[in-house]
C-alpha cells in the first residue's frame, strides 16, 4: 500500500487522496495576454523531477501541498498551504462582479 503523509491526518493510504494539479502562480486573467493565459492553463510543469503539487485528503476535505518526484514517485515533503500562501488570494472575476 502506498502511503501519503497528510499534514492534518498523518500517514494514510494514497487511495484516500486526489491529485489536484501543480502549484503555480496564476496570472491576472484581466491583464495578461492570451499567450500567458494559455501558458498557465495548458503548460503545467512536466519535467521528470520534483514538482510541487496540490493534493486533497478526500474524507476530510483538506487541501495541502506535496513535493513529489515525478520519476520515482517519492514524496519529499508535504505541508500546509499556509507555508507559502500567507495572504488571501482574491480573484479578479470577483472584483468585476462587485463593480
Amino acid at each position: 500500500m502506498k502511503m501519503l503523509c497528510c499534514p492534518l491526518n498523518g500517514p494514510r493510504n494514497v487511495a484516500e487522496f486526489a491529485f489536484g494539479g501543480e502549484v503555480r502562480e496564476m496570472p491576472d486573467p484581466q491583464t495578461c495576454s492570451d499567450r500567458e493565459w494559455a501558458e498557465y492553463v495548458f503548460y503545467p510543469p512536466n519535467h521528470a523531477g520534483v514538482i510541487a503539487e496540490w493534493w486533497l485528503h478526500v474524507p476530510s476535505g483538506y487541501w495541502f501541498i506535496a513535493e513529489r518526484n515525478r520519476s520515482t514517485d517519492e514524496v519529499i515533503r508535504t505541508y500546509d498551504p499556509s507555508e507559502i500562501y500567507t495572504t488571501r488570494v482574491d480573484f479578479a472575476a470577483q472584483e468585476e462582479s462587485k463593480a
Partner: peptide, 13 residues
C-alpha cells in the same frame, strides 16, 4: 493512473 508519473511501475489498487 490517478496522478502523473514518468514510471512504468504497476499498482495493486
Amino acid at each position: 493512473d490517478p496522478y502523473p508519473l514518468y514510471n512504468t511501475r504497476s499498482t495493486l489498487p
